[in-house]
């Protein structure tokens, strides 16, 4: 057996990194993220089927009991979509923690690559995975009676807001993934995220909640985001929600991305 002689690969020579390499590194890492998504059956199942189950539960089981004026399905679908997106994005935390706590990060760091593309792979895969899952949930919602009134422009706006939300949630979970020392801790974060939409206007209007909860629900970031998406899809009044929503997303990203980048750099330099 010879590990060298069959190959006609030239021995590499020492080279500084090139920009074109960074592009190809990013492509390889994104490809890796996508394969992980498809390979990790549990996460995929959870992030697609959990929202579908919730959709059916809310529409068919609770739907009759909750009166929000219009048909409940038209009220609840935007909330389900965000729940789906948020939950799916939160599973990114586990992937990041796994990368940081198993030996693979050392392998990547010993290669002539831009190491931050490891995180990029997770972020892009999360965007793709969750936009796909959102589309699926939306399709099922339409099949069981969801009737959005959005114009094409409204649709573009709604998709943009959902995408921004996914991006934000993904980065928040990247941050938690970098903080967590074990994959279990990281998945704990995922469950925390799962509960946020319940204390928002996702499933019931906030003014039906007790005062303390109402205050929290009104002012947590998910409520204006949901109101914006609902307004765009169903024509309900949006008011100030759209810019509050954008502000929340931008502010959270502005905090979370630098923190993540700092954490990543210090975790990969010790």
């Amino acid at each position: 057996m010879s590990v060298l002689d069959q190959t006609r690969v030239d021995r590499p020579s020492p080279r500084p990194r090139r920009l074109s390499w960074t592009v190809s590194d990013a492509a390889v890492m994104i490809d890796r993220g996508m394969r992980h998504t498809l390979r990790n059956g549990d996460a995929l199942f959870m992030s697609v089927f959990l929202p579908i189950m919730l959709l059916l539960l809310f529409v068919y089981v609770f739907g009759g009991a909750i009166d929000v004026g219009t048909g409940y399905i038209n009220y609840v679908v935007p909330g389900i979509i965000l729940l789906c997106a948020g939950f799916g994005a939160a599973t990114t935390a586990v992937g990041v923690t796994n990368d940081m706590t198993t030996g693979i990060i050392d392998r990547f760091r010993s290669l002539p690559i831009a190491t931050w593309t490891v995180v990029l792979g997770h972020v892009v895969a999360s965007m793709a995975r969750n936009l796909f899952a959102t589309g699926l949930v939306l399709g099922i919602a339409v099949a069981i009676g969801f009737r959005p009134t959005a114009s094409p422009l409204d649709w573009v706006g709604a998709i943009a807001v959902v995408a921004l939300f996914i991006l934000m949630m993904t980065w928040v979970s990247v941050m938690f993934g970098l903080i967590a020392k074990t994959a279990d801790a990281a998945s704990g974060f995922t469950f925390f995220i799962l509960f946020l939409p319940y204390v928002s206007s996702a499933f019931v209007p906030t003014d039906t909640m007790p005062a303390a909860l109402h205050g929290f629900a009104e002012h947590q970031p998910i409520t204006p985001i949901i109101e914006t998406v609902r307004g765009l899809l169903m024509g309900t009044p949006i008011g100030n929600s759209w810019w509050i929503a954008l502000l929340w997303c931008a502010a959270i990203l502005l905090v979370v991305v630098p923190i993540s980048s700092h954490l990543f750099r210090s975790r990969t330099r010790v």
């Binding site: 021995r11 590499p12 020579s13 020492p14 080279r15 500084p16 990194r17 890796r32 394969r35 992980h36 390979r39 990790n40 796994n98 198993t102 030996g103 693979i104 990060i105 050392d106 392998r107 010993s110 290669l111 002539p112 690559i113």
Partner: peptide, 26 residues
């Protein structure tokens, strides 16, 4: 000059650093 060094070294650490979710070929 870490990049120059990294482009010509191979490292096999004390604990295997491979991607658990991917196949050997991948």
């Amino acid at each position: 000059q870490a990049d120059q060094v990294r482009s010509i070294i191979g490292l096999t650490g004390q604990y295997a650093s491979v991607d658990e979710l991917l196949t050997g070929y991948e």
